[in-house]
Amino acid sequence: MTVEKILAISGKPGLYELKVQTRSGFVAESMIDGKKITVSLRSNVSLLSEISMYTYTEEKPLVDIMRAIAVKENEGQAISHKEDNAKLIAYFKEVLPDYDEDRVYPSDIKKVLNWYNMLQQKGMVSKEEPKVADAEVVKEEVVKEVKAKKEAKIEKVNKKDEKEQKPKAKAKK
């Protein structure tokens, strides 16, 4: 499952695919309708590969949960996220029997199933284990890009400070 560049943006429905980073944020494409949007750095954005859910023993990565759904459904569609809460909870218990019922709400289950079905329609779900090296390489690239942008901003600020500190030459009379 390749979800390293799939984003969930707070306040916006569905999932988005990271297309390109810009100076002030990035451009993402909606997986629902294919429209591209610009997202500022101030927006609350989560990478799907970084999201996890609570179990009684640990936090389980969302990728592993989606892989469990893919195994259960033989890479087909899961039940609709619009089913009633009792059905959703029963279904989710089959997928992840030890999830923490006190900290994982029906709304969380709905979101996971909606996201899974969205990714399944795009052919992005798989029963196979992810290639850890690929995920680490992508994560390292993103970290390098962010560090480079921060360093460029710091350098720009330092140059501006240097210009302001130099005294202006007085004209001779």
Rank of each mutant, 00 (worst) to 15 (best):
L15E: 04
Q165I: 10
K5L: 10
P97R: 01
K35D: 07
K111H: 05
V138E: 13
E162S: 06
E145T: 12
P61H: 00
Y54N: 09
Y105I: 09
I9E: 01
I79C: 01
I51N: 00
K149F: 07
V45Y: 01
K72D: 15
L47F: 15
K173E: 15
E140I: 07
L88V: 00
K82N: 13
E73V: 05
Y56N: 14
F92T: 03
Q121I: 08
F26T: 06
V142F: 11
E50L: 00
Y16D: 02
I6W: 02
R23Q: 14
D108I: 00
Y54G: 02
Q21S: 11
K156Q: 14
A78S: 14
T2I: 09
I32P: 00
H81L: 00
V132F: 07
M118L: 12
D33G: 03
I89E: 14
A171K: 13
V39H: 04
M53G: 04
E141L: 03
Q21Y: 14
K35F: 12
P13W: 07
Q121W: 08
K35N: 14
L88N: 04
D84A: 00
K160Q: 15
K150E: 15
V142P: 02
V143C: 03
K35Q: 13
K36D: 07
S126V: 11
A70S: 13
K35A: 07
Y56Q: 12
L7D: 06
L88W: 09
E128Y: 09
L88Y: 06
Y91L: 06
K144R: 12
Y16W: 11
Q21I: 14
M124D: 09
D33N: 07
A8R: 12
K36F: 01
Y54M: 01
T57G: 02
E129S: 10
D134N: 10
L113F: 03
K5S: 11
I32H: 10
E59D: 12
G34T: 07
E50I: 04
I32R: 08
K163M: 08
V3I: 11
V137W: 10
N158R: 09
T38S: 05
E50M: 03
S107Q: 06
E75K: 06
L62K: 02
W115Q: 05
G123N: 06
N44K: 12
I65D: 02
N44R: 11
N114W: 11
E151K: 05
E141Q: 11
V3S: 01
Y116C: 02
